[in-house]
Computed example of a mutant assay.
Amino acid sequence: MTAMKEPRDGYAQALLELGAQHDDVFVLDGDCATPNYTIRFRNAYPERFVNIGIAECDIIGTAAGLSLLGKVPFANAYANFLTGRGYDQIRVSVAYCQRNVKIAGHNAGTTAAQEGATHLPLEDVGLMRAIPDMTVIVPADATEMHKATLAAYEFDGPVYLRVGKLPVPELTGEETPFTIGKAVTMREGSDVTLVSTGCILSEVLKAAEILKTEGVKAEVLHVHTVKPIDAEAIVTSATKTGAVVSAEEHSILNGLGSAVAEVLGENLPVPLERIGTRDIFGLSGTMDELFDYFGLRAENIADAARRAISRKA
Rank of each mutant, 00 (worst) to 15 (best):
Val159Tyr: 12
Val159Leu: 11
Leu161Asn: 08
Arg162Met: 10
Lys165Tyr: 12
Leu166Ser: 14
Leu166Thr: 15
Leu166Met: 13
Pro167Asn: 06
Pro167His: 05
Val168Lys: 07
Pro169Glu: 04
Glu170Cys: 12
Glu170Trp: 02
Leu171Glu: 04
Thr172Met: 02
Thr172Gly: 05
Glu175Gln: 15
Glu175Leu: 08
Thr176Met: 08
Pro177His: 09
Pro177Leu: 07
Ile180Phe: 12
Ile180Pro: 04
Lys182Ile: 12
Lys182Tyr: 08
Val184Asn: 06
Thr185Met: 10
Arg187Pro: 11
Arg187Gly: 07
Gly189Ser: 03
Ser190Ile: 13
Asp191Val: 14
Asp191His: 14
Val195Tyr: 02
Val195Arg: 07
Ser196His: 09
Thr197Gln: 05
Cys199His: 10
Ile200Pro: 02
Ser202Asp: 13
Ser202Pro: 00
Glu203Trp: 01
Glu203Tyr: 02
Val204Asn: 00
Leu205Trp: 04
Leu205Cys: 12
Leu205Pro: 05
Ala207Gly: 03
Ala207Gln: 00
Ala208Ser: 09
Glu209Phe: 01
Glu209Cys: 03
Ile210Glu: 02
Lys212Arg: 05
Thr213Arg: 12
Glu214Ala: 07
Glu214Cys: 04
Glu214Asp: 10
Gly215Val: 02
Gly215Lys: 03
Val216Ile: 15
Val216Pro: 05
Lys217Trp: 01
Lys217Met: 13
Ala218Asn: 09
Glu219His: 15
Leu221Trp: 07
Val223Tyr: 10
Val223His: 13
His224Ser: 15
Lys227Glu: 10
Pro228Ala: 07
Asp230Gln: 08
Glu232Thr: 15
Glu232Asn: 14
Glu232Arg: 13
Glu232Val: 15
Glu232Leu: 15
Ala233Cys: 08
Ala233Ser: 15
Ala233Thr: 03
Ala233Lys: 11
Ala233Phe: 02
Ala233Gly: 07
Ile234Gln: 01
Thr236Asp: 13
Thr239Asp: 14
Thr239Lys: 15
Lys240Phe: 09
Thr241Gly: 09
Gly242Lys: 11
Val244His: 05
Val244Gln: 05
Val245Lys: 04
Val245Pro: 02
Ser246Trp: 04
Glu248Ile: 09
Glu248Met: 10
Glu249Lys: 06
Gly255Ser: 02
Leu256His: 03
Gly257Val: 06
Val263Trp: 08
Val263Tyr: 10
Val263Asp: 11
Leu264Arg: 07
